[in-house]
């Protein structure tokens, strides 16, 4: 039962029920032919006007708003009686859109981004809030511009490393407009500067000696890793903003999807077209 109470969908229905009752109490007019424009309605119209125009409406403008409201209400009710809303593309889209908005609203009502909720989300998804690998390293490069086979050239230098001074090793690579030393750079930065996948390759290298070769977007490298800082989970305080944004995004999506899935269960979808591959038809079977 406790678990059931945590289900967004249950909340959704409970809130729906409450609102239904409240709505019924405050909107007695909806079942008869009276059109009542009360104080609140007029205030609401004036407020909308104010929002749009940054000044209150004049008496004349207000009368116009009321007249238009009444006209619209009359036509609207007559249209409903004639079922003009049925199978109207605009009405369909608008109502579908409203349902989606509703999903969003409900998710913020059911699962607001309180400190408690966000913290719980952080605890559950801690892995998403890891820092990157951070490296300090030196590198030399061998490119196809200077070597028939840069891979072989790099391996040959690596074999010779014990016989070479630090300075000689530095000079053994090609002249290339790239830093020899990188200090405290994270994986994101390394891939941005050297090409996709380079940071992954660094993970395979030993620290504290010349190692490699690895391949970048520019050529083949030998690398001396001086320091590697492993990823750690960042403290909540440091990532609070990101977690909150992620939480809200996730809740909105979850809510939307849960509601849609639940509602879909009520329908049996039959697509009668040979243009659609049978693979896509399979979606119905999960209902």
């Amino acid at each position: 039962m406790k678990k059931l109470l945590k289900e967004p969908l249950v909340h959704f229905f409970l809130i729906g029920a409450v609102l239904f009752v409240v709505y019924g109490l405050v909107n007695e007019r909806s079942n008869n032919e009276d059109i009542i424009v009360d104080k609140e309605d007029v205030a609401h119209m004036a407020e909308l006007w104010q929002l749009q125009w940054h000044r209150p409406p004049t008496a004349e403008e207000l009368q116009g708003l009321i007249d238009r409201y009444v006209e619209q209400e009359v036509l609207y009710r007559e249209a409903l009686k004639l079922n003009l809303d049925h199978n109207d593309e605009i009405v369909k889209r608008r109502l579908a859109q409203k349902m989606e908005f509703l999903g969003n609203d409900l998710s913020t009502m059911v699962a607001p981004a309180t400190e408690e909720n966000v913290l719980a989300f952080y605890e559950k998804h801690k892995d998403n809030y890891q820092s990157d690998y951070v490296y300090s390293f030196k590198q030399i490069i061998f490119t196809g511009d200077h070597h028939q086979n840069p891979m072989v050239a790099a391996k040959n230098i690596l074999k010779e490393k014990e016989n070479l001074t630090a300075e000689q090793l530095k000079e053994a690579g090609d002249a290339f407009p790239l830093n020899f030393e990188f200090t405290n750079v994270d994986s994101f930065y390394i891939n941005r500067e050297l090409g996709d996948g380079v940071a992954e390759q660094l993970k395979t290298l030993e620290t504290g000696r010349w190692d490699g070769p690895i391949v970048s977007g520019f050529g083949v490298h030998l690398v001396y890793i001086e320091k590697q800082i492993k990823p750690k989970i960042q403290p909540f305080e440091d990532v609070r903003e990101k977690v909150t944004a992620d939480y809200e995004y996730q809740m909105e999506n979850d809510g939307k999807e849960a509601i849609l899935n639940e509602l879909k269960k009520k329908y049996h979808v039959i697509i009668k077209s040979e243009a659609i591959a049978s693979k896509e038809l399979a979606q119905n079977k999960t209902e």
Binding site: G16, A17, F20, V22, F101, D105
Partner: peptide, 23 residues
């Protein structure tokens, strides 16, 4: 019960929309 609750969805929409424009 479920059916009844689902039926109320439409009404929830109406209420929720009113509050939306006032936001």
């Amino acid at each position: 019960m479920k059916k009844l609750l689902l039926g109320m969805l439409g009404l929830v929409v109406l209420v929720s929309c009113d509050t939306k424009t006032e936001k």
